[in-house]
Simulated assay, not measured.
Amino acid sequence: MAEPQGAAFVREMMRWHFGPETGSPFWLKRAGTLDFDPLTDVRDFDDLSLFPNLVDELRDVRVRDLIPRGYGDGHSAGVYESGGTTGQPKRVVFAAEWHRRSVEWFSERLDAHGVARDVDWLSAVPTGPHNVGAMAVDTAALRGGLNFAIDLDPRWVKKLLADGHTDMAGAYTDHLVEQIAYILSSQDVGVLFATPPMLERLAQRDDLVELVNRKIRTIIWGGTHLDADTRDLLRAEVFPNTRLVGGYGSTMMLGTSVERPGLGDDEPCVFDSFAPYTTFRVVDPGTGRVVPYGERGQVVVHHMSRTALLVNNVERDHATRIAPVAGGFGDSLADVAPVESFSGTKVIEGVY
């Protein structure tokens, strides 16, 4: 069965999410408050701008109301939460089919980068209510490996930093590095999945730098931004024996995007989305208009799949607008960096 494409895919998603037999209680109720009819007025990707940004409602909504009726009874799903960077966490539901599909796509992108299969992973990413931990476990398993995890609570670090307890935040980060060190020294792991702050902490210890360069074939980084200079330093001088592959994702994206393969060392890291299910737009934050290619703006994310409809989600990041790969939709992103504040809240990345 061919993948859905373009405008036909958008109309298919509108029929699913606003059909009385398939839509979720959340969207079927919300439809009555919209000043347009999604079934007749939303015909292509550009029409998604008609929707209001509703992600803040996901902080308090009854989670079962987010599950589309089209799944029927007895389906399997997971509930995941955001990191709480801009306030109380938001919640989303991943149907099992969507989680499986996103893991398979992630794995295919790793293949495009030449990431080895049949090796074990060390994942220094959030677990618990965060989907990235579940994705790490299942991606490693799909590729023939085991996944070693650490306890990482990103909200605790952000709370400590917000309250000015930098010493305690530093001590907690040391605790995370100790967990990583124990696994690195005792296990044969070939993939390290970690955030840029964790990589920078590892780089401060010569013994761990030696272990990474000796054991790790690929470092997958994501969760917080990594500027071009630090990326070059890590790739060329700190971890020269490993391959670095970047990811850009969020809970509200319901997945991740992956660095475009085949780019030269002097080219920026470009992120391609899992289109048509997840698409990016880069807009002028003042006017909401799409900026020209090569210019910077705020990232807007659309997610459309059977598992969820989350469109016109204004992210807390700025990026440079890049043309998508041939046959792609929306925009690709380069030089992603967080804004200083978002929705009146100071943005604190911490360790994730």
Rank of each mutant, 00 (worst) to 15 (best):
W121L: 01
A96E: 15
D151W: 10
S250D: 03
G128H: 14
S49E: 14
V92K: 02
G247Y: 00
A162W: 07
V339L: 06
G170D: 11
V137L: 12
S82L: 09
L50V: 10
R43G: 01
F94G: 03
D272R: 12
I322S: 01
L34V: 04
T251I: 08
F45D: 06
A162N: 08
V339I: 12
Y182E: 15
N213F: 12
R100A: 14
Q179H: 11
V336T: 07
A7K: 07
M304T: 02
N147H: 09
H99L: 14
E210Y: 09
M304V: 03
P129S: 08
V238P: 10
P20L: 00
A77Q: 02
S250F: 08
V42E: 02
R64H: 13
V119H: 05
L28S: 04
V92Y: 01
V282T: 05
T195W: 03
A236C: 09
R62M: 09
P338I: 00
L34R: 07
R217L: 09
D266H: 14
L254D: 02
A8E: 15
T307P: 09
G145N: 10
D206A: 15
P285M: 01
D232M: 11
G330D: 05
V103K: 01
V311Y: 11
L110F: 10
I183R: 10
R205E: 14
I183W: 10
G164I: 04
